[in-house]
Design a protein around this nucleic acid. Structure first.
Length: 745
DNA sequence: GTAGGGTTAG
């Protein structure tokens, strides 16, 4: 050691010497048997070279002496320090405690000024009392520490809980603290054990138990507790009421909630007390979560006093009901806003397809000096997912990592979707595999991603893995799975998943689940069974059901049944363009031009406008948008030229342009290339021209991709040996080497 | 010693 020191360290440079010792001592592991002689050596070396051990070096020396049972050396060193820091003190205290020298431990404790102490220090002393079997002293200290403003951690609770088995309970206040500690850590069983052991249960203890159950999703346990509490004759307070109302809200128990509401009103009368503000806030949440947004607003309007919680609750109610315009004006009206307010409105925008507005608000929030939390990031990231802004999404991902939010569940889940919807399913998968924590949302998102990319079998595999890992599937999981089955043509498997949904998992299928079942059957051409399923629906079939049927009929050219479905749809929503288009395409497929024209006329007569198709592609941080037969884009001529060149090569490989779809588009009669110039074709070709050689072209389209374009991209991917990804209104098509991942779905 | 408002998946 001397050699190393003299070779590389200038002995006059005090800092360098100190650093050198710091490194040496760092290498000396306190638990190893050789640590003591090593530490001694370093210590002696320091003494002879005139460097006084300080700070970390000192604490480490003390630590090593303590751990190697050289308590006397440790204490000698400790005594020499003018003002030992809290780490050194804790080390000494803990060692005395472990060596069963409680008096020495207590002396260290008492000579440590209050302002130096911390939770760990208190924990050490509490443990010392426990070792000394002085339970009362331990409990007293536990209470002191709370009174002095130190919050106990799980180590504190572990020590104190040990006493619980040994001591008769006398001090309800302490046990209540312990219960809340366990509740906070989600250990409800232990909390319950302590609770049941209490002779006299305080209101706060009851409340803590109820709330613990609510927060962890055990609603029936919470309500059971509430009923028992009520019977026990103890006085309920506003904490009790808010907790119970919250339980009802999350479980959708509207009637029970209303009973509680009525009960509270009676108690208010009886006690001439006003529980108002917090209870009203809880009531707002109860009403909107049970789908009664206007009633929630009524409560808000009638409140004598409101706070930010009330405002935020109403904002959430509008957002969740998809009433985004009301949410926006309410947001503007708000007298005060906090991080939560912004989070709600940002993600509200994303949920309602207004990604750009969501991102604007996110920036505005930052301009107002608010630091976004991971939930706010999640909102901004899903805004990116909506508009397929990959670059922007990546930037947010980078910021997230920089800010240390990279283990956040909500942001991670939002990222999975963002990458998926931007056409980078590999990134989504990588994220899913490397996230430190995942939940059912993450699983659902990943399964959906695979399904949307046409990897039906892989999606099902992942689902099976989810079950193996004992993650409970929910209604969304089954929506995803049914789609995946329909995709992969796995009719029987899909049907058995549908049956298992209620039979095995107790999830009652809703209309959208049935719609996917119909879709599954129709796509497989099983119209008889689809019709049968529709007839046996436990409710009146609505839009999703008829849509699925019409779609399936179109694929198989089952015009008669398709017309029936279309008629129902036209009744249910006469102003929706999609039905007319589907119906007219179906007539085109079978060459019934007259009927097609009739549909077109009906559409015109009713004033229904077809949503114009547009496609866009991101090149060098700019989004380029194309319309059908675009003439507006400045570089469109180069696109047409290249398209023609590609068209020739594609035809050599056997590509035959299918012009029948082109007939639908007004003004597309000048088809100079023998190719229809749908927006997606222009966007893809532009991407091929502009993006770096070999880079995957990712194009987004607002409507569904047309059949001819789909076929063309297959040939195109082969001709130019590049990957093309197209996200249309519903799913993804990954073209590679003449094939599409969707399997012509 | 405790509450009431958020997020992500189709």
């Amino acid at each position: 050691m001397k050699n190393v020191a003299s070779k590389s360290i200038n002995p006059c440079d005090i800092r360098a010497v100190a650093n050198f010792y710091a490194t040496q001592i760092q290498l000396c592991c306190p638990h190893s048997p050789t640590s003591y002689p090593q530490a001694r050596c370093i210590h002696a070396h320091m003494t002879t070279s005139g460097v006084k051990p300080r700070g970390h070096i000192l604490n480490r020396l003390i630590d090593v002496y303590c751990k190697s049972s050289h308590l006397v050396s440790a204490h000698q060193l400790f005594d020499k320090i003018p003002l030992p820091d809290i780490v050194a003190r804790t080390t000494m205290l803990a060692t005395y405690s472990a060596s069963r020298k409680p008096d020495m431990a207590l002396e260290i404790f008492n000579t440590t000024p209050l302002r130096m102490r911390d939770t760990v220090f208190y924990n050490a002393m509490i443990t010392a009392h426990c070792h000394d079997e002085d339970g009362h002293a331990a409990i007293k200290l536990f209470r002191d520490m709370r009174r002095e403003g130190f919050s106990p951690d799980k180590f504190t609770f572990t020590s104190v809980l040990k006493l619980f088995d040994e001591m008769p309970v006398r001090d309800e206040l302490t046990w209540t603290t312990i219960i809340t500690g366990y509740v906070r850590n989600g250990d409800l069983d232990t909390a319950r054990r302590v609770f049941e052991g209490m002779e006299e249960k305080l209101v706060v203890a009851w409340n803590a138990m109820i709330l613990g159950y609510v927060h962890n999703g055990f609603v029936s346990e919470a309500l059971e507790m509430f009923k028992r509490m009520n019977l026990s004759g103890i006085k309920l307070d506003e904490f009790t009421y808010t907790s119970v109302l919250s339980a009802c809200a999350s479980a959708g128990l509207f009637l029970f909630g209303k009973q509680v509401h009525a009960y509270i009103l009676r108690m208010e009368d009886k006690l001439s007390r006003d529980f108002s503000l917090s209870v009203d806030n809880a009531l707002i949440t109860l009403y909107w979560k049970c789908g009664k947004v206007d009633e929630a607003r009524m409560i808000f309007n009638n409140m004598p006093v409101r706070d930010l919680v009330s405002w935020n609750a109403i904002l959430s109610s509008y957002v969740s009901a998809g009433r985004i315009n009301e949410a926006r004006s309410f947001f503007i009206e708000m007298p005060d806003r906090n991080l939560l307010t912004w989070t709600v409105i940002i993600s509200g925008m994303a949920q309602n397809g207004l990604g750009e507005e969501g991102l604007k608000l996110f920036n505005q929030m930052k301009l107002e000096g608010l630091k976004p939390c991971d939930y706010a990031f999640a909102g901004a990231i899903s805004s990116c997912a909506v508009v397929a802004a990959l670059k922007h999404g990546c930037q947010l991902h980078a910021q997230l990592v920089r800010l240390g939010f990279d283990s956040s569940l909500s942001a991670g889940n939002a990222l999975i979707t963002m990458y998926t919807r931007c056409g980078v399913v590999e990134a989504a998968h990588y994220l899913f595999l490397t996230m430190p924590f995942v939940d059912s949302v993450s699983w659902n998102a990943m399964i959906a991603a695979l399904g949307q990319y046409g990897h039906g079998a892989q999606a099902l595999e992942l689902f099976e893995q989810m079950l193996e890992e004992e993650i409970l599937p929910d209604r969304i999981t089954f929506l995803t799975i049914l789609s995946a089955c329909s995709h992969a043509g796995l009719v029987n498997q899909g049907r058995s998943y549908f049956d298992a949904m209620y039979g095995l998992y107790g999830i009652r299928p809703e209309e959208d689940h049935y719609a996917r079942l119909i879709d599954l059957l129709c796509r497989a051409g099983k119209f008889f069974e689809a019709k049968d399923a529709i007839q046996r629906l436990p409710f009146e079939p609505g839009v999703p059901i008829w849509e699925a049927l019409l779609d399936g009929c179109r694929i198989h050219g089952n015009v008669d049944l398709g017309v029936q479905a279309a008629e129902r749809l036209l009744e249910l929503r006469p102003q929706h363009d999609g039905t007319y288009i589907l119906l007219s395409n179906m007539y085109v497929d079978v060459g019934r031009w007259d009927d097609m024209a009739k549909v077109r006329k009906l559409m015109r007569d009713r004033g229904v406008k077809k949503e114009p198709g547009c496609s866009w592609v991101e090149v060098e941080n700019k989004v380029h948008v194309f319309l059908v037969d675009d003439t507006a884009h400045p570089e469109v001529q180069a696109v047409y030229n290249y398209l023609e060149e590609l068209g020739m090569k594609m035809r050599e490989l056997g590509y035959v342009p299918d012009t029948k779809y082109a007939l639908h588009d007004v003004g597309s009669d000048k088809k100079q290339h023998g190719l229809s110039t749908h927006s997606e074709k222009l966007a893809v070709v532009f991407g091929l021209l502009k993006l770096p050689r070999g880079a995957t072209v990712r194009v987004f389209k607002n409507l569904r991709i047309c059949g001819d374009c789909h076929n063309a991209f297959k040939f195109m991917s082969k001709v130019i040996e590049r990957d093309i990804v197209v996200r249309d209104g519903k799913r993804f098509h990954h073209f590679r080497n003449g094939e599409c991942s969707c399997g012509n779905y």
